[in-house]
Design a protein around this nucleic acid. Sequence first.
DNA 1: TCTCATGATTAGGCAACCCTAATTCGGGAT
DNA 2: ATCCCGAATTAGGGTTGCCTAATCATGAGA
Lengths: 228, 228
Amino acid sequence: MHATTATESLTRSVEDYLKAIYRLSPEGRPASTSDIAHLLELSAPSVSGMVKRLSELGLLEHIPYKGVQLTDSGRRAALRMVRRHRLIEVYLVQFLGYPWDAVHVEAERLEHAVSDTLVERMAAALGHPAVDPHGDPIPEADGSIREPACTPLSELDVGDTVEILRVDEREPERLRYLASLGLIPGAVVRVEDRQPFGGPVTVEAAGARQVLGQELAHVVLCGAEGVR
Amino acid sequence: MHATTATESLTRSVEDYLKAIYRLSPEGRPASTSDIAHLLELSAPSVSGMVKRLSELGLLEHIPYKGVQLTDSGRRAALRMVRRHRLIEVYLVQFLGYPWDAVHVEAERLEHAVSDTLVERMAAALGHPAVDPHGDPIPEADGSIREPACTPLSELDVGDTVEILRVDEREPERLRYLASLGLIPGAVVRVEDRQPFGGPVTVEAAGARQVLGQELAHVVLCGAEGVR
DNA sequence: TCTCATGATTAGGCAACCCTAATTCGGGAT
DNA sequence: ATCCCGAATTAGGGTTGCCTAATCATGAGA
Ligand SMILES: [Mn+2]
Ligand SMILES: [Mn+2]
Ligand SMILES: [Mn+2]
Ligand SMILES: [Mn+2]
């Protein structure tokens, strides 16, 4: 097992592929070509081609017609990018006054351009934050990460009172809308009503009642434990 | 004269070429293929090829076997990159504790990844500085720039007392060495001795006498006016 | 005017990434 | 056991941007 640590420097494309694949395989379950293509907004043949290259680089394992799985080396590289991305997001919010809906696009480019030194200086300046502006946990420099259990707002029961931990959304307009309702990480909400068959959820947040469609309720992730 | 303002987004390579050509043509005098190749550490044929593409993009004018000259559009794009580069350098020094010898490499990558918004936020956070850590003037957002006249330390006369305005050097080791002698922008030095035929220059800086070889004395640029 | 060194360009290739069109594979339904 | 559909891969192409080797233009000096 030759520890392929000398990964030199990966291209922007490669780094984004690894990040996408990491995102698509929570427990190392294989990710499909079409899922990757969809997430990265690329054609399936492009993904097939890149997958071949990545497996030759030892960054993932590919079982044709089955899917891909990151190797240790690939997962390490992916987590490095996730750390960069999320730390950059926090930095932009804390030190440069960015709103939470604008940081993703900026970080998506910067993550490939910063040096390890710069990332760690930002982390230090921020006091080594644990989560990014959307509540996503920031991997440690050593590659460890702790994903707290959470439940979509859309799956809670009426009467539940929970803290919002994460908001799994990238579209600026949706993020702004959610923030305008007070639905941001750290907020405590109570489920007031929930209609069946994908109907809307009514919550109390920031002292006001909000009705939320299924689509949005699905991206608001709440602490598994109820708040007393 | 169709004002090619909609330059879309240039590639990293294109941006670095424009910056290099700008640097090589102080008063719009044409830059040669080999000078560009040397500055960017590329082969001459690579430059020839890129020059063709850039002139097709309307970013420069090429007279074969003569040289290239930036168009207005090209100069605007180049100055935009210079502004980014220098502001990033200042930001890294002021807010992230970078030493002046380390900022160039970092900025060389970041300049291509930051958005206009981010650059301007950094500029505002810095209070819109006029010069970068090496004393190089930062172009305004509108593309204007004022290059103060300056003279290399190697060309001053014995007895001259001047302020160091700029240090035109990128190699970290040389920059650290110069800083260790107190030869940084803002410092006032007096020329104590100067040997002929490319010999060393002796200066008094920070209360100590320093002997400086021609090569280094050439990159230390001083105010044209003597300091009383 | 002719020669020739030097610098520039052209010729020909390669690697990274992307695409569309054509083909092939795998597994569920008949 | 076959058929077929959808997913995946292969075939074939294009762009960017770099390279080395070969050719060519320019102008200084003979
Ligand atoms: Mn990215
Ligand atoms: Mn985020
Ligand atoms: Mn650069
Ligand atoms: Mn500088």
